[in-house]
Amino acid sequence: MKPILTFALSLFTFSLFAQDQQLEHKLENIAWISGTWHGEAFGGITEEIWSKPSGGSMMASFKLIADGKIVFYEIEVIREVNNTLMLQLKHFNNDLKGWETKDETVDFPLKEITQNKVVFEGMIFEKVSANEMNIYVDIKDKDGKIEIVKFNYKK
C-alpha cells in the first residue's frame, strides 16, 4: 500500500510542477488564446476574437455591447519584441474615434508563461479549459486606484 501511495503522491506533485513550469516566451506557447470568445462585463456583452500566431504576432478585436449598442472597441496585438512578447492595444469609441493619440498604445510587457497562464504586467490570461478562459485586467478608476476586472470567456 505504501509504494502505491508514494507513486500517487509523486504523480500529483509532478502534475502540479508541470502546470507551474515556465515556458519560453514564444507565441506557439500561447496559441490556446486564439478563437472567438464571448462573455459579460461592464453591464454588457463582450466579444473578443484572437487570431492564431502568424508573422510574429497574434491580433484581436474586442467589443462591448450594452443596451443593444456598441460602447467601445479595442484592437489588440501580442507580438514578438526582443526575444519576448508584448501585448499592445488601442481603444476606440463606438464611432471609431481613438482614445489614445495616433502614436500611443497601451503596453503590457510579458512577465511569464506557464502551461495555463500568460502573465503580462497588468493583464493575465488563464486557461480554464479548451473552451473557457479568464482574463484579469488592472483598470485604474478616476482616483487612480487599481481595480482588477475579471472577464470570463467561453468559445
Results as ranks from 00 to 15, higher is better:
122 G>D: 02
17 F>R: 05
137 V>A: 02
69 K>M: 13
56 G>Q: 07
22 Q>I: 11
118 V>C: 11
145 K>E: 14
71 V>S: 11
39 G>L: 00
149 V>P: 01
58 M>D: 04
149 V>T: 08
30 I>Q: 09
122 G>A: 05
86 M>N: 08
40 E>A: 11
139 I>G: 04
53 P>I: 02
10 S>F: 04
151 F>R: 00
5 L>N: 05
128 V>A: 01
105 T>Y: 11
60 A>E: 06
47 E>T: 10
11 L>K: 07
88 Q>D: 15
138 D>N: 11
58 M>I: 03
61 S>P: 05
147 E>Q: 14
37 W>H: 00
153 Y>R: 02
135 I>Y: 00
147 E>D: 15
137 V>E: 05
1 M>N: 11
39 G>M: 02
14 F>H: 04
53 P>N: 13
146 I>T: 15
106 V>N: 11
121 E>C: 06
28 E>I: 13
123 M>G: 00
55 G>K: 07
114 T>I: 04
137 V>P: 02
132 E>Q: 10
141 D>N: 15
119 V>D: 07
38 H>T: 05
131 N>S: 13
34 S>E: 08
1 M>S: 12
92 F>E: 08
106 V>M: 14
133 M>D: 03
16 L>C: 13
129 S>W: 01
37 W>A: 01
81 V>I: 15
92 F>M: 10
137 V>I: 10
46 T>P: 00
76 E>F: 01
136 Y>I: 11
137 V>K: 06
